[in-house]
Computed example of a mutant assay.
Amino acid sequence: MKIRFSSPKEQQPTQEQGLKVLYAPGKRLAFKLRWYLILLAVTSPLLFLVGREFLGLWLIEAPVQLHLPSTELRAREAGQVERVLARPGDRVEAGQLLVKMDNPEWRARLALLGDPAVQARRPAGSRPLPEQERQALERLLASAESRLGRLRGLLAAGAATRGEVQQAQDERDRRQRDLVQFERRESQPVDDTLERQRRLESDWLQARLHGLELKAGESGVISEVLVDEGENVGPGTPLMRLQRLGDAELWVYLDPRDAVYASPGQPFRLRLPDGTWLPAEVVRMVEDAAPVPVELREAFSAPSRNLRLLARVKGEWPAFWRVDRLGLKARFPHRWRWLDSWASGR
């Protein structure tokens, strides 16, 4: 049997069993295009990787994150948030009232101290118990006893803890102690020293209550409110975050193999999300290798630590893109190492 590697159909593709086929050339072209498309689909991943590698050799790019100068506003004393006078996005001026706070315990103590001017006009000798102050103490004591009774009932039903009952009992004991101390103090003869102490304590409490108000130390924009009205906070609790109206900082995460571009004064171009390019320069190199933020990493890339540079834009930053933690792209002018080595060799 003789095997032929060429057929008459290949030599005469326009004929089929002696008949002329008009669509044969077009059909043959379609077969070629189909095989070309299959070949392109098979080799496209390899072409993508090779093209990406060549593009990386040609373009020196690095992810950038925008950081706006900000500060946290914290509570100086323990208290209850009464009113929040600013919302995220509001622009505030220095000295503007942002959060109004109160302390119910200090208010109750002021009610017990009474008005210093009235106390000073009382006659010498023994003085009667002020009915208004006594009623305030009795109401506080009755409220504490009522809460203790409710918690004991909830403890019996399994809906409260022993710690909550003990806390309510301690509060009841403190109210009883305040009432006993009040009666003992009021039953004693009038003493100028005692009145002076009461006046000083009242002024001190008034000053502390006034110090609970949180005001803006400088002009800026409220970026975040961390508390709600009616919430109890302790000393040092963050209440708000304020973005100052200073220059924006650019943190560039440069690949260590491109460390030659990390020198201060190195110019580069910064690409905004809308495609606009801005001139920028490196200010200084941070002396550490920081991990690239997850939102700045490319797809399917492994976690890595890059050189973190501090940079700035030459000119004024666009107000529209003044967004904290905004992801950007930096492109550095290419330096040919072989050209520099050739020039230094000469």
Score class of each variant (00 low, 15 high):
136 A>M: 10
53 E>K: 13
317 W>E: 14
99 V>F: 12
246 G>I: 01
27 K>W: 04
222 I>T: 12
176 Q>A: 15
29 L>P: 03
6 S>N: 11
321 W>R: 03
279 P>S: 03
8 P>K: 15
127 R>I: 01
259 A>T: 06
134 R>N: 06
149 G>Q: 15
71 T>Q: 11
68 L>H: 04
277 W>F: 14
4 R>A: 12
238 P>I: 01
41 A>H: 08
317 W>Q: 15
126 S>R: 07
46 L>W: 14
263 S>N: 13
103 N>S: 04
109 R>M: 03
184 R>Y: 06
60 I>A: 06
11 Q>A: 15
115 D>E: 11
242 L>M: 08
330 A>E: 03
179 L>G: 13
224 E>H: 08
135 Q>A: 15
307 L>C: 00
173 D>N: 14
255 D>E: 15
92 V>S: 10
35 W>D: 11
239 L>S: 09
314 K>Y: 00
191 D>S: 13
159 A>C: 00
170 D>R: 14
346 R>E: 09
42 V>P: 00
93 E>K: 12
232 N>R: 09
313 V>H: 07
306 N>P: 10
340 D>G: 15
344 S>R: 10
333 P>R: 13
145 E>Q: 15
323 V>K: 14
328 L>M: 12
137 L>Q: 13
207 A>K: 15
298 E>H: 10
17 Q>K: 13
67 H>Q: 12
283 V>I: 11
161 T>F: 04
80 Q>M: 09
322 R>W: 05
39 L>N: 00
317 W>C: 13
119 Q>N: 08
81 V>I: 14
115 D>C: 10
338 W>M: 08
135 Q>M: 12
20 K>A: 06
217 G>Y: 03
274 D>N: 15
67 H>I: 01
342 W>T: 04
126 S>M: 02
279 P>F: 03
297 R>Y: 05
165 V>F: 04
252 V>M: 03
60 I>Y: 07
135 Q>S: 12
50 V>D: 12
15 Q>D: 08
214 L>K: 03
92 V>T: 06
119 Q>V: 00
40 L>V: 09
216 A>Q: 10
109 R>L: 03
175 R>A: 07
322 R>A: 05
309 L>K: 14
294 V>A: 15
49 L>R: 15
331 R>Y: 05
49 L>P: 11
135 Q>T: 08
194 L>E: 09
166 Q>C: 04
66 L>N: 09
83 R>W: 06
267 P>K: 07
334 H>K: 14
130 P>M: 04
43 T>W: 05
160 A>F: 07
123 P>H: 10
151 L>A: 04
325 R>V: 01
111 A>D: 12
302 A>D: 12
232 N>I: 01
24 A>M: 11
177 R>Y: 06
332 F>T: 01
319 A>M: 11
156 A>P: 00
345 G>R: 05
287 E>I: 01
48 F>V: 04
132 Q>K: 12
53 E>A: 12
12 Q>R: 13
91 R>I: 02
